[in-house]
Design a protein around this nucleic acid. Structure first.
Lengths: 178, 178
DNA sequence: CCTACATAGTTCAACTTTCAAGGATGAGTC
DNA sequence: GACTCATCCTTGAAAGTTGAACTATGTAGG
């Protein structure tokens, strides 16, 4: 399982390259299953939504966030943060959604730098029409196939992983992750 | 939890729009954690590899597959299938990796339509140099944070989900998923 | 051989994402 | 006010992805 360390060989205090701890066979299998399942699911949902709603999964997620926000509106940065995407990406995305008439921008009165993105009625309608199909897809891929215990386990596992990634790494355009 | 069905209300045999079974609060929380964790991790690995290896995660995965293949080579379609990407995407990816000198194409003697993608020595070297960092990132994000039981649970869960998605959906350019 | 159809891979155009740079406003300090 | 620095968001170009169309080769049946 663990790779034998080489650090003791010469009492090296600088440790230029500690022998990496490779993944065990079991871990490799889990890792592959993880990659496998997550990419298949993301692809599946992307295609499902592209077909039924005319937008990729991420964009759909943005509409959902807006729909649940107080006055159907959110500041750009907050929306980016809760959707886990860069502000740059959000700018492009909102521009596209705006072209579709599903989102509008509105200036922020208290902060002239700020912008609100807000869900239009048309946007809400798209959501209303396509949500059932999307939920069905999610159910079919995940909740209908897992036992209640597994769902709970998955929740706990994903929370732990997310925790570890949230405050990590300094990103150029993800200042809230510093 | 379950939404009350409306199907019995009028003995409707056509069932034009059965009330969708929305996600329960618990399910919603799990679903969000899932999206949250998986996107953060994928982004994290993408940046880690882009920085250290000069390529996105998917491309790195292609090199790994090739490295493990019999003579460091694979038919394009097989490679696409095992990496869960379309052949189109693979064509572009291999073109890029070829420019980097990490992969070469070779004709298939038995089938003139076919192409092999094969890992060059340079490609193997890149892999050798960057694998430790990548494994460390994966460990840090996943295996170092989960208990052995959770790792096992995650494996089981991901296998179930992948199963459900594998043979599903007819894809235009994913003929093996029919 | 010929036709019809399937498979292997590529290519093009449209779209999405990333990265680095930039313009504008806010906040703190002197 | 002037300076400095942080924050808000956008932009443009390069890179990556998608879906459909396309070329070429294989395969099966008459």
């Amino acid at each position: 399982m663990d790779a034998p360390g080489e650090r003791d060989l010469m009492g090296d205090t600088t440790r230029p390259e500690p022998e990496p701890r490779w993944l065990s066979d079991g871990e490799q299998r889990v890792w592959r299953s993880y990659l496998h399942a997550t990419t298949l699911l993301e692809d599946h949902l992307d295609r499902q939504l592209q077909r039924d709603a005319g937008m990729p999964h991420v964009y759909y997620g943005l509409l959902v966030q807006l729909a649940q926000a107080p006055r159907r509106r959110m500041r750009m940065t907050e929306l980016a943060r809760s959707a886990k995407i860069t502000r740059s990406r959000l700018s492009h995305a909102v521009a596209r959604l705006e072209k579709n008439g599903w989102v509008r921008r509105e200036e922020c009165p208290s902060d002239k730098r700020g912008q609100f993105a807000l869900l239009t009625d048309e946007g809400a309608e798209v959501l209303r029409r396509t949500a059932p199909g999307h939920v069905a897809a999610v159910r079919q891929a995940m909740f209908d196939r897992l036992s209640p215990e597994q769902v709970e386990q998955l929740g706990a596992i994903m929370r732990v992983m997310a925790e570890g990634l949230e405050p990590a790494g300094s990103h150029a355009d993800l200042p809230w992750l510093r």
